[in-house]
């Protein structure tokens, strides 16, 4: 009796397992990990793509550095990073990189009675605030940029990212571009030795600190500024014009980007010329292996990004990201054909 019972349980289990294997063979799944900055738009794309094709895209927003680590360890099908790898780093790790989406990093302030766009800052002043050289909101340097605005004599509380982040990379890259002192004493990285201020974890950490601390200034990805209703600042760009952060000003900065002459698509969009360009615009990148063991999965991954390039701009617009222009998409897909190969050397795209 007992043995028959056991057998039937085992048989049932075996059947269930077989069914499971069968089901997973049916549903295609691709996985990626990395930057948090583009996570909202990747998630929406994945949702729309799954509804259309049944292919499920799993994206873990663990941060750019994490994404690079994971793709190097081949635990995911693609990695995502806000800080591009250089051509040498790509070659060393056997990776292909391309820009996928663009957006903006926005300084946000919390001063009583100040609304979004009221405060105008220049790169040099922003750098001096983050260096701890400008400590009061009524400092002459700020007043000179805002002749019509009466700012309180309140201490500036600087808020920065405590975790390593592509947003910090793009922000410090911009500060280094406009302030020689920043470049020499602090430098550019995903995390740096901040001379002043408190650190919040993630975009949401910086947003909530900025919201809570009177007289604070922080920097977040644009979508977080909108969602949290934070007062963004206007920035003086390279051409000396004041611009507000909008999808249009990000796109203006992106339009000047010379992707064709950037080896391995290593290009940072900070401090671009153009009267309407937002100065802290950033691209986010995708990384895949050059040599693919599983050609089918590789094709699935490229299919997803191809679909997103061609059909994803509405979703991106809604979330205030900027899609890559068509010319760049063509270039990227040519790179896929040339560089992404199966382990047998066959083309995948």
């Amino acid at each position: 009796m007992l043995t028959t019972f056991k057998k039937s349980i085992l048989g049932g289990a075996a059947l269930l397992m077989a069914a499971g294997v069968f089901a997973s063979a049916q549903a295609t799944e691709i996985s990626g990990a990395g930057a948090t900055f583009p996570y909202p738009v990747y998630a929406k794309w994945a949702e729309a793509y799954e509804a259309k094709t049944g292919v499920k895209m799993n994206y873990q927003s663990i941060g750019s550095g994490g994404g690079i680590k994971q793709i190097k360890a081949s635990t995911v099908d693609f990695g995502a990073s806000d800080a591009p790898l250089t051509k040498e780093e790509l070659d060393e790790a056997g990776l292909v990189q391309w820009p996928m989406i663009m957006g903006g990093v926005v300084p946000v302030v919390n001063i009583k009675g100040i609304k979004g766009g009221d405060v105008k800052l220049s790169g040099a002043v922003l750098a001096d605030i983050y260096l701890g050289k400008i400590t009061k909101w009524d400092d002459k340097a700020i007043a000179d940029l805002n002749p019509d605005l009466k700012l309180p004599s309140e201490a500036i509380s600087v808020v920065e990212r405590s975790d390593g982040s592509g947003t910090t990379f793009n922000f410090t890259n911009y500060l280094a571009a406009v302030s020689p002192e920043w470049k020499d004493s602090i430098g550019v990285n995903k995390s740096v030795q901040w001379p002043v201020g408190v650190g919040g974890k993630g975009n949401e950490g910086v947003a909530s600190y900025t919201k809570q601390i009177d007289g604070s200034i922080g920097y977040v990805e644009y979508a977080y500024a909108l969602q949290n209703d934070l007062a963004y600042t206007q920035m003086k760009n390279k051409d000396g014009e004041f611009v507000s952060p909008t999808a249009a000003s990000f796109a203006a900065a992106a339009a000047n980007a010379d992707w064709a002459n950037a080896p391995g698509y290593y290009l940072i969009l900070g401090n671009q010329p153009g009267a309407k360009s937002w100065p802290i615009t950033a691209a986010s990148f995708i990384l895949v292996h050059k040599s693919q063991d599983n050609a089918k999965t590789a094709k699935d991954v490229l299919d997803f990004f191809d679909w997103s390039f061609k059909n994803g701009s509405d979703i991106a617009d809604k979330l205030d990201y900027v899609s890559m222009p068509e010319s760049v998409v063509d270039m990227v897909e040519k790179t896929w054909t040339a560089d992404v190969k199966g382990s047998d050397g066959k083309k995948i795209w």
Partner: peptide, 9 residues
């Protein structure tokens, strides 16, 4: 450690 480990490349 919690803040920096993931991004410490």
């Amino acid at each position: 450690i919690a803040n920096e480990f993931v991004e410490a490349d």
